[in-house]
Write a protein that binds this DNA or RNA. Structure first.
Lengths: 341, 341
DNA sequence: GAAGGGGTGGCAATCGTTTGCCATCTTTTG
DNA sequence: CAAAAGATGGCAAACGATTGCCACCCCTTC
């Protein structure tokens, strides 16, 4: 017995039933399935519920209905500003739909990610994976256990919201090329990161189109801490410009270049990806691919919820993939190529 | 019936009971209260549980035990970097203790805050309020409904983790005074913000101690968007230095000053509060009061959990208030006072 | 006037655990 | 050796909702 003393036992559906002079089942129906009960009865019940300040117990509801109205959002690092946007987007959309948001930090570990998903599978209606570190096969398997939507991760059979940064890479490269850069480096993010591979792939395509060769350095963990190593590596290649896996790393690079008295953009141009918080006020302000991060979060939630609502009938209205466009935001970190020494 | 087809009905405690040849109650005890059952029986049960990959159903558990093992963390704006730290701290500590973290963005609205707390009170074991917008009275009332811990908010009867920024204000002011500043402005944050009042109060004390008068401008909403207005207001006061409610606002001010070609720190010095992400790489890097934000999150969780665990016996070991010290981090945004024109 | 059919509402089973209470068996103790 | 105490496990009643099924009433409709 949780609360033996009748101190302030929470109001249940039965209390309302008693107050309104009906059965508990009728109360349940009046509240969830209004068409099913007579209008005047319903009103009486609603009045009683209001009067008693009734709040349904979600555990009880979850137990009997099998639906928890809770969605998990998994991010690989809550302190990475990229995810702020995601979290905010999901938060908004989930709240609007009356779902609770469970935030989980997977600490960049695929195992932790899989374990959490497995453990919580019974208490969740679904999950959104931002930056999953899981192998495709594993991801597909988990998608069978629990409804999943990924962000920035393309796996067959798993719906996803994808930010089309690779397309933006083209714009970024054109921008640099038009400034006279020929020697461009790509600073690689984490090895097992899907967006990282996609971005590098896009770089190579641009290079091929222009009969150039771009070099790649890395991989580096995507944090500011990797900045020094990454900056040094870029300088070693002799490139006059670089496109960096993400802004966080790019900002780290900027700091290191400053330390080494390498001028940006005079000596080297830097382009980031994502346009996170800080990209506009670092020094110099970062030219970057502006991504609709919040929107990605919102879209992912919508996709997930629409899957949950359709009662097992695969409505064709929901797309499996939503591609979100990015655009290049030119700021101070890019400029004309330095004349070769 | 949630899952009518027996497709892959989740494993329950009963399945284990059957497999191990005991009663369900014994399984429950073996898993939650190991001392209560014989060692060999327990091992048999654990083996079966492992074999069947049993995961307990939290709703069911919550329903019968009355405890959900879920804690809500309420922040007033998820995109404010200050809260990243809080969220990360709570996240770590909660995960370690086996609790789920429900993230709620109250969008700076006290009503939304109260409503969410009230609605979720049945599905939560407790909540952590970072930057509550609720009046003291309301807060105290809600603390009776559900275990609460606040961060940076001091209300009688509600335990809290408080970052001692006011003490730091003293250091910041001394720093500025030693640089020759006599005319110092305080840039006020949101009006109903408790930390804001505390910081201004600390400013006035320092001023009194030195027989000076500091001016106050604002209030301003705490976002970068308020930067321009705040910067202009500061310039109007003729102050040679300012201490700003928080870094977000300070960074906004920095940007505006740059636009207006006011040099920092030559023409005016700026000190922020919190040392958020970005404070070290904005231009110039911001001198600020470094706050142990993550730690505040962790401490708040510890306080909350210790309250939950002590089975209604008010153990005196838990303090009601934990004060966390800050320190001044001097960077590029402060320098010697300009000679009066 | 009998048969059929919507509209309403109640009964009771069910979801998966936890836990009070009791029965049994084994030890310890005087 | 009897009685008390402890260890162990089962029974069954919660917890608070949802929902299938049935009963009843009141209208139609032929």
């Amino acid at each position: 017995m949780p609360r033996p003393s009748g101190r302030d036992r929470p109001v249940t559906i039965n209390d309302i039933a008693a107050a309104a002079g009906v059965a508990a089942s009728t109360v349940s129906r009046a509240l969830n399935n209004p068409g099913r009960v007579n209008a005047v009865t319903r009103e009486r019940i609603e009045a009683a519920a209001r009067e008693l300040r009734y709040v349904p117990s979600s555990p009880a509801r979850a137990l009997s209905s099998g639906r928890t109205r809770a969605i998990a959002v998994l991010v690989s690092d809550v302190t990475n500003p990229f995810y702020f946007g995601v979290i905010r987007g999901t938060q908004q959309q989930l709240k609007a739909a009356g779902y609770a948001q469970l935030l989980i930090d997977t600490e960049d570990s695929g195992e932790l990610e899989a374990e959490m998903l497995h453990k919580m599978r019974r208490s969740l209606d679904g999950a959104i994976l931002a930056a999953s570190r899981l192998p495709d096969r594993e991801l597909a398997r988990l998608a069978g256990e629990i409804p999943l939507v990924t962000i920035n991760r393309n796996v067959r059979g798993v719906p996803s919201a994808i930010i089309d940064t690779p397309a933006g890479i083209g714009q970024a490269a054109e921008h640099l090329l038009s400034l006279g850069h020929r020697d461009i480096a790509y600073v690689s993010g984490p090895q097992r990161s899907w967006p990282n591979e996609a971005r590098w792939h896009a770089m190579r395509e641009v290079a091929a189109r222009h009969r150039l060769t771009f070099t790649r350095v890395g991989p580096f963990p995507s944090g500011r801490g990797s900045g020094p190593a990454a900056a040094d590596a870029v300088l070693n290649t002799g490139a006059t410009a670089c496109i960096v896996f993400n802004d966080l790393l790019a900002i780290g690079i900027l700091q290191r270049l400053r330390e080494r008295h390498v001028r940006v953009p005079e000596d080297i141009s830097v382009v980031g990806c994502d346009d996170i918080f800080g990209a506009d006020f670092c020094h110099p302000p970062l030219t970057t691919l502006t991504a609709p991060i919040e929107q990605a979060g919102r879209v992912a939630v919508s996709m997930l919820l629409s899957r949950l609502d359709r009662t097992s009938s695969p409505s064709p209205t929901t797309r499996q993939q939503v591609m979100l466009p990015v655009h290049l935001t030119v700021r101070g970190s890019t400029g004309p190529a330095a004349a070769p020494a």
